[in-house]
């Protein structure tokens, strides 16, 4: 059985997506990519620090990766749209992770503005992956707006607190026909595996890898955990209960037919 993840018409080889923030050195990124096997890599767009020469992150991302700019910094739909258009014009391809945040304490996404931005960008031909709070109605609206996947958070960004929103994400997985990618909050490989066992299409991990003592080893661990979780999901859960049916109390009457 071929198990492929297709988003925006592209077949994705790895169900682990990597965020590139907070690494001690960008030079680690190629190694991290190689160790984990990731194919989708996120980057952000920022104003240049006018006084210092900075590195170009894109130069560290292997060429066969899909570069997915996020719209971090956007506080409403218009800003997110503007950032997405700039990133695309700058040669980033047509993938974009919509991220609209106005809450500076928990960094929780604004689903309403996210839906608006998704609608505009999907109509322009972007492959839109919106970062969202796991709310079923919002996810349905994102699907209607043309999102290519939905990316509910497991816990606040960078918190490493794990799948706190598990039940809500489970509902999205059951009810939404788009790929559900758990983004934010996953702190350990076991949590990534749990998300995959539950039926998530992929997970996006950044802080847990970037801030590990050994990011390359941690990336490898995450890559394997995601694969293990996916394999377990596909293998199907064992029968958890056996119904004894010796006496057929409910359907026995059919035997008289």
């Amino acid at each position: 059985m071929i198990d492929s993840l297709v988003i925006g018409g592209r077949e994705i080889s790895s169900r682990l997506f990597l965020g590139t923030g907070k690494f001690p050195s960008n030079r680690l990124i190629p190694e991290v990519v190689a160790a984990s096997g990731v194919q989708v890599v996120t980057v952000a767009l920022r104003r240049v620090d006018l006084d210092f020469e900075e590195e170009n992150i894109a130069a560290y991302v292997p060429g066969d990766c899909i570069l997915m700019p996020n719209t971090s910094g956007a506080r409403n739909a218009e800003e997110a749209v503007r950032i997405a258009r700039l990133a695309k014009a700058a040669g980033c391809g047509n993938w974009v992770k919509i991220e609209v945040i106005t809450d500076n304490r928990y960094l929780l996404p604004d689903n309403y503005e996210t839906i608006k931005a998704t609608e505009i960008l999907a109509a322009e031909g972007f492959t839109v992956l919106p970062y969202m709070s796991p709310d079923l109605m919002a996810a349905k609206r994102l699907a209607e707006a043309g999102a290519a996947a939905v990316m509910p958070l497991g816990a606040p960004i960078g918190s490493n607190r794990g799948l706190r929103t598990k039940e809500m994400i489970r509902i999205l997985i059951e009810e939404i026909s788009l790929p559900v990618i758990v983004d934010a909050g996953i702190g350990r490989p076991s949590e990534a595996a749990a998300a995959m066992e539950m039926g998530a299409a992929a997970v996006l991990v950044n802080t847990a890898i970037a801030t590990a003592s050994d990011p390359v080893a941690m990336a490898r661990a995450f890559g394997r955990a995601v694969e293990a979780g996916r394999t377990a999901y596909l293998a199907g859960p064992g029968e958890t209960r056996q119904y004894a049916s010796a006496s057929s109390p409910l359907t026995g009457f059919l035997r008289d037919e």
């Binding site: 923030g21 990124i29 996120t42 980057v43 952000a44 992150i57 700019p69 990133a87």
Partner: peptide, 10 residues
Amino acid sequence: LEILKFVGGG
């Protein structure tokens, strides 16, 4: 004038 560039981000 806005001078922008790609940086690390998740």
